[in-house]
Simulated assay, not measured.
Amino acid sequence: MHPLRSQSRRFLLPAAAVILACGACSEDPSGGGVPLGEEQRGIATFYDANGSGNCSYAPTGDLMVAAMNTPQYANSAACGQCVDITGPQGSVRVRIVDRCPECAAGHLDLSREAFARIAEMRLGRVDITWTPVSCDVAGNIEYHFKDGSNPWWTAIQVRNHRLPIQKLEWRRGTGGWQEVRRESYNYFVNDSGMGDGPFDIRVTAPDGQQLEDTLTRVLDDGSVEGSGQFR
């Protein structure tokens, strides 16, 4: 075990040092996340990541991933966002898959594999700059229904998106669009369900781009490929 390892799974920086390192960091707990292209300053640490975490993604073989600090996690608005990080010995692009509960604004907790791209592992924590960027993904977005979803309780997660998801709306027939509540575990949940289908889904990116799809029915732990992708 590394000598800097705390009792939790993550490296911690003393509170005063966090304030100094992140004095220029923006905090947005309202749900908007950090805007694309807005450079942040902070620190990087590492943990034993496997691609899963608070964003409710499955473990993955691509371990260029990270956990976002709690203020800038923004109630899961950061989930799936890509971030370019520059450290003392290199740079790396990661995808946000988790939340670091004890991390202050500006702090990113990286997988071991990602941390090794920017610094020597023995350092444990290093100063970084980081910038949210568009993800280089292939294919269209994907809608995943949470296990237990049914016509009377429906939870949808958006996957494989190039830009962060700002909001998700739904409608039936010619009715008006209704915004669906976002949970901190990265699902949009309609407590009264979306019925037997078909129904329309509309997702919006922070820059205003929108994608619309018609889904035929609610699935239980199943996925549906959308018809488009953000630019």
Rank of each mutant, 00 (worst) to 15 (best):
E120V: 01
G80L: 04
V34A: 05
L219R: 14
A205G: 07
L215M: 02
A21H: 11
G37Q: 04
L13D: 13
E142G: 05
R125N: 12
L168R: 00
C103P: 01
L13S: 14
S52P: 06
C82G: 06
R217A: 08
W152R: 14
D196M: 13
R122Y: 00
Q210W: 02
S227A: 11
G80I: 07
F115A: 10
Q166L: 13
V83I: 15
N150Y: 03
A119M: 11
N150D: 15
Q40I: 14
Q40P: 12
V224Q: 08
A16T: 11
G87P: 01
G176P: 04
S6N: 14
D191C: 03
F115D: 03
G42A: 10
T204F: 04
I201A: 02
S30A: 08
C135L: 00
D220T: 05
G222C: 08
I128L: 12
D221S: 12
R217S: 09
T129Q: 13
A16E: 14
W153N: 13
L108W: 07
G148C: 03
M121C: 00
N69D: 14
V94T: 00
A116V: 03
T70C: 02
R172F: 12
L108R: 06
C55Q: 07
G51Y: 09
Q210C: 06
L4P: 04
A44W: 11
N190W: 09
V34D: 10
V18A: 11
E113A: 07
R122N: 07
A21R: 12
M68Q: 12
E179F: 02
A21I: 09
G173I: 08
R10Q: 03
A77S: 13
C135Y: 01
A155E: 10
A66W: 05
L219M: 10
Y73V: 01
Q89T: 07
A49H: 11
G222M: 08
L20W: 06
Q40H: 13
A78C: 09
S192T: 15
V18E: 15
C22F: 02
N150W: 02
L13H: 05
P29K: 15
G195Q: 06
A15W: 06
D207Y: 01
R99L: 03
W152S: 14
Q229C: 09
R9N: 04
S8M: 07
R202S: 06
T216C: 01
H144V: 08
G208S: 06
Y187C: 00
V65M: 01
V83D: 10
E39K: 13
L168H: 00
T131G: 04
T45S: 15
T70Q: 13
Y187Q: 08
C103N: 02
I43D: 09
S223G: 04
D98Q: 00
R5L: 12
S134E: 13
I156G: 01
T70W: 15
Q157C: 07
I118C: 11
H107M: 10
M1L: 08
N69L: 02
S8R: 09
E225A: 13
V126N: 10
G176M: 00
Q178L: 14
T131H: 07
P88F: 09
I156H: 00
E39Q: 14
M64Q: 11
F46V: 03
I43N: 13
R181I: 12
H107S: 11
K146D: 05
P59S: 15
Q72W: 05
E39R: 12
R172T: 14
I165Q: 01
